[in-house]
Design a protein around this nucleic acid. Structure first.
Lengths: 172, 172
DNA sequence: TATTGTTATACTCTATAACTATA
DNA sequence: TATAGTTATAGAGTATAACAATA
């Protein structure tokens, strides 16, 4: 067995491994369901549900959306293109900033989301929440939300790639 | 906003979204680190660390490994091939079952793991555990481990694909 | 000059189905 | 006949770098 430099807290390690495993299994099941129920990849589902629940307008700017989903901007362009082709979102110039593009979910997009949702909720309920009591779900949320906020406090991906671009190599 | 058929528990929804977000952010950071520190993908890292900590022999059969990591068997063959090419694992027939292949981590594999581990632990510590008190890590493990066991109680992927193969279509 | 978004490109990964060999 | 693993193949997805347009 490899023994890393510092003594690793076995409790933390257990939590981490459980998280990885749970996530892999859950994600695989979710992907199956989304594909079968609406021919959607998980990323596409994330885009649509972000737009759906984010605002009254159901809109987002491209970069914000990419950061929200932890995607490269070019990757999001690709996915948004697919969704647009299917009529699930529209893209239009952002008012007030001619550089920007605002993505908006369409009625068809909301309809597809509604079609896919019940099965989605069922998978998540069966796999993730069945073995958890109600207050355990509460506890899980209470644990993970601060973690998310902590992770989000770092600069987003879009900023990072730009920084790399701007940074002069060998700059002393 | 789309309203799915049943009333969805907002607490559960919050926990689920937080889980997805935390996982995406964490995984992206981990992949960066593993790539930089040892030219390893996350899946390859999972294979190696499974082998490393699974047993005294550091061995596993292909199908078991695939199931453990939630991979198709052919996908694992591909990854194992890459690892073998780099001398990080070996593949040899399983004793007692001529059909099987046993994968074993090599000294070079363990060395690479040791090389990559400190940075890996650091990323996980900084991102996941920094905002969590010690007993919160314990609580997280206590919540997720039963969930993992529950998910693992379903038949593994290898069994599923074989079942599909065997099932007669339109069989009444 | 920096930022927004797209495009061109190259590549990694993944899965399905067909195949071989053993139980 | 069912299982273990590989292979061939094809497709989906992702990112990097270069680019055009606006701030």
């Amino acid at each position: 067995m490899v023994h890393p430099s510092g003594p690793v807290d076995p409790v933390q390690l257990g939590a981490y491994f459980a998280l990885v495993e749970v996530t892999s299994l859950l994600r695989h099941a979710i992907e199956q369901q989304l594909q079968a129920a609406g021919d959607l990849s998980f990323v596409q589902f994330q885009v649509l549900s972000r737009l759906d629940r984010h605002s009254a307008t159901g809109s987002h700017r491209m970069t914000d959306l990419a950061d929200a989903i932890v995607h490269s901007r070019s990757g999001l362009t690709y996915q948004a293109g697919l969704l647009e082709k299917r009529g699930l979102v529209t893209r239009a110039p952002t008012a007030g900033d001619e550089r920007g593009i605002t993505v908006t979910i369409t009625d068809a997009g909301r309809a597809l989301l509604a079609q896919v949702m019940p099965g989605h909720v069922e998978v998540v309920s069966n796999l993730l929440f069945e073995p958890l009591a109600r207050d355990s779900a509460e506890a899980l949320a209470a644990l993970l939300e601060p973690v998310r906020d902590h992770m989000r406090s770092a600069p987003p991906r879009s900023a990072q790639s730009r920084r790399r671009r701007s940074a002069r190599p060998g700059g002393a």
